[in-house]
Design a protein around this nucleic acid. Sequence first.
DNA 1: GAGAGATTGTTTCTTTGTAAACAAAATTTG
DNA 2: CAAATTTTGTTTACAAAGAAACAATCTCTC
Lengths: 151, 151
Amino acid sequence: MDMPVRVADDVDLGRLDSALGFLLRMAQLKVYERFFETLGDKDLKPGEFSVLWVISRNPGIRQSVLGQRLMIKRAHMTKLIRGFEDRGLVTRRVPDEDRRAVEITLTPEAAARVEKAAEWFFDFEDAVGNNLSSAEQKQLTLLLRKIVGLN
Amino acid sequence: MDMPVRVADDVDLGRLDSALGFLLRMAQLKVYERFFETLGDKDLKPGEFSVLWVISRNPGIRQSVLGQRLMIKRAHMTKLIRGFEDRGLVTRRVPDEDRRAVEITLTPEAAARVEKAAEWFFDFEDAVGNNLSSAEQKQLTLLLRKIVGLN
DNA sequence: GAGAGATTGTTTCTTTGTAAACAAAATTTG
DNA sequence: CAAATTTTGTTTACAAAGAAACAATCTCTC
């Protein structure tokens, strides 16, 4: 009587269920999903917010540096920044010292908007570890920072 | 003397540097990057391996169930499976009990290939937590499993 | 059992992200 | 300092992934 597997919980993941890379991907997808469930109406996506936030903390930062820090490829960064420019959120300036580079700064409107968005964004981020104790959350943050190389 | 930020380590991330969702994304990107550095020549990507692996553990599993478990949307799953079919890795069968569904099974060649690939894949996965102590690795696995809802 | 609604998979369109080739400017090296 | 190399950003082409509309089938309700 070989009933086919019917529901997701019955699926045998084998060793995959404790593979770190796999779990990281699943966790990230899950968080993303939750984001769009609860904040899908906001007009900034997590990636967009992160970029704008980092620009706000580092005015005049260069595209390349921004990309390195947020792990966004140059080609993609170009598109993101142009998108922001089209929306009037950032200004680009080519510095005299290095005329290949582009320095990015928030417009005043964007700066205000990022501060506003930071409220719901970080509220959400704080809630990500909801089903963990606060000690566990601290621990997880620490471990992820190590994986990422932020220590 | 307002030197612009020059290198990635000087970038101020503000509160972002301990935001769980952000860290999860960064960690996942980092792992992905490392995968392609070390195993970029293999002809199976992590996502592809995971799907084939799960099929191998659950022969005759349905596309929908597979997608639910691996968090892959139906539309995307269709493309993945067709790709596998074109490569002769899986066979599709519409069961009589439910003629909307599709049951997926590995071809014998694919089954062998997955077993072979499992070696380097799980070796890689084991190495993901390299710069963590083995206690930390266990802890991280546990916490991620909680986030994902695998407990 | 006939119709309303839900599920399953596919198709088409769009978005997000990467890869490779390129141009311009800076740096290195001989 | 001139030629070779590297860095920075852009463009073009493509791959990965999601959204929405659709068709077929199944289930539920009356």
